[in-house]
Amino acid sequence: MPDAPILELEKVSMAFEGKQVLRNVSLILHHNETYGITGPSGCGKSTLLRIVNDLLSPTSGSVRFQEKDVREWNPQELRRRVVMVPQEAKMFPGTVRANLVWGLKVHGMTTEDEQLKAILREVQLWPIDLDGNAENLSGGQKQRVAIARALLLKPNVLLLDEPTSALDTDSALAVEKTINSLLSDHQMGVLIVTHNKEQAERFTSRVLELENLSEAS
């Protein structure tokens, strides 16, 4: 008997100021599954992730996490379990260490440096100066810090918005490999947005292709 879905989207639609961005999007994500969302620019891929992360509420349809509508979850608790790494990896003012523990801190959790080192090894960013200014990191390094920061929360679902868009091909492949190994280690579902259909097919077990509704209409 298959396990219960960890995340379910049912006929999710979204419109901004009367402009339809998403129409009747449905998907089911299970544990240890990587689901790719692809499509042309402006088709609402990032919007969909923001809806799942509850940063936006859909105009119609429902999002269920662990068989409970997201509106029934406390927003902070939901976002600790369903963590999103935005496309543009933004660093908070301060050190690499402060950035890594930022999410833990807001939930009143702590960690040891050993755990930080372990997670940084997983995202292939160790060794790094934990006391260095996070703003001085390269785009790829920031992306990995952002992924590590999200993983430290031990999420059930990881939402990755174009995680390799800022990286060169080699780094992008390395990050893909990293995410794949994380998937088996962390027992979570991953929803990954990418404009690159090949990457989506190569990297994920299922792919949902969205269309640009403004062009289609």
């Binding site: 940063l55 902070q76 976002r79 935005p86 543009e88 933004k90 003012p93 807001v106 952002a146 999200a150």
Partner: peptide
């Protein structure tokens, strides 16, 4: 906005996200 939403996406409350 992106930094503020990064904070919210990690589960920060509005107060925590705007503290600085």
């Amino acid at each position: 906005r992106p930094l503020l939403e990064t904070a919210l996406a990690l589960g920060a409350t509005p107060k925590q996200a705007t503290e600085l």
